[in-house]
Design a protein around this nucleic acid. Structure first.
Lengths: 151, 151
DNA sequence: CCTGAAAATATGCGATTTCATATTAGTTTT
DNA sequence: AAAACTAATATGAAATCGCATATTTTCAGG
């Protein structure tokens, strides 16, 4: 039999042994925890997310960035426009294709995101303290594997 | 040194080795995949989510259910009210505390959710085919551990 | 090059979500 | 047993999101 993942004594309910629920739950619980700090610092969650991604991969065009950030394109367009207004990022036309816009972080955006990235890594470390080294390594490896299955 | 999770050759970018991003990404990518099927069947995502949870743990009051479903309370109130109108669940006053409402699935709700749960498990199986048994076991165990850390 | 298809981004609007707070009910303290 | 506190749910207004679609530009075939 294949479905005996959880503790064998109590008959497992649906959601507790359903991978997509477990992923959503772990993601939400842990993210909410950190998001409280982000909000406390006066930054909106989506601004944090976008900045972290733009810093990570500067110069992406909107569509690619929307895949990285995991936000739908039209939503990201609106967020970016707002962030441009706020001086956090800028849109540069791409030479050779006048449709494309490359997104870069500004100095102001850098200043905003830098401490948050430090804080994010600190929070992550705290979370990971609860796992063994091998658990952590395997978790990250498996998560990456899962992400790259997308059909 | 502690932060060497990803392949040691390419200098890892921030998000790719950041647990909260990996969790969010895996969750979104895999959920979106299944959500396409849910939408195709004409059911809203949040209706699917709530039904699966109510079937799983019938009779929870709104607040407890909102924690299980991972939806904010006032949002769940509105969703449940709509679902009551649609005959998918019902709210029963709880004896002994007139504030509380216990949520149960109706026969119509059952009929709607049953095939989706089968489909969900089938989708999960397909996803899990890409992992070894020990990877799967450990993944689910670690995810549960992470969820229960919440401060 | 002209036409039709595809890609990248933008936009309008309806629907959903969130936030703060109201309301009602139970609990505790004195 | 009144006052103050806490808990459970509801509600209204503002913000956000998502869908469908428009617009502009590039690409591919004949």
């Amino acid at each position: 039999m294949t479905l005996m993942t959880a503790s064998a004594d109590k008959p497992t309910t649906f959601v507790d042994d359903y991978l997509l629920y477990q992923l959503a739950s772990a993601s939400q619980v842990l993210s909410d925890e950190f998001h409280r700090k982000v909000k406390a610092s006066g930054t909106k969650i989506h601004v944090w997310r976008v900045l972290a991604c733009v810093v990570d991969q500067p110069g992406l065009m909107l569509t690619s960035l929307s895949k990285l950030v995991l936000y739908e394109q039209s939503r990201l367009t609106k967020i970016i426009d707002q962030m441009v207004d706020d001086g956090l990022v800028n849109k540069q036309p791409v030479a050779g294709d006048r449709r494309k816009m490359a997104i870069f972080v500004t100095a102001k955006g850098q200043d905003l995101v830098a401490p948050l990235m430090v804080s994010a890594k600190a929070h992550e470390s705290k979370v990971l303290e609860n796992l063994t080294d091998s658990e952590m390594t395997m978790l990250k490896r498996v998560l990456n594997k899962l992400c790259n299955l997308q059909t």
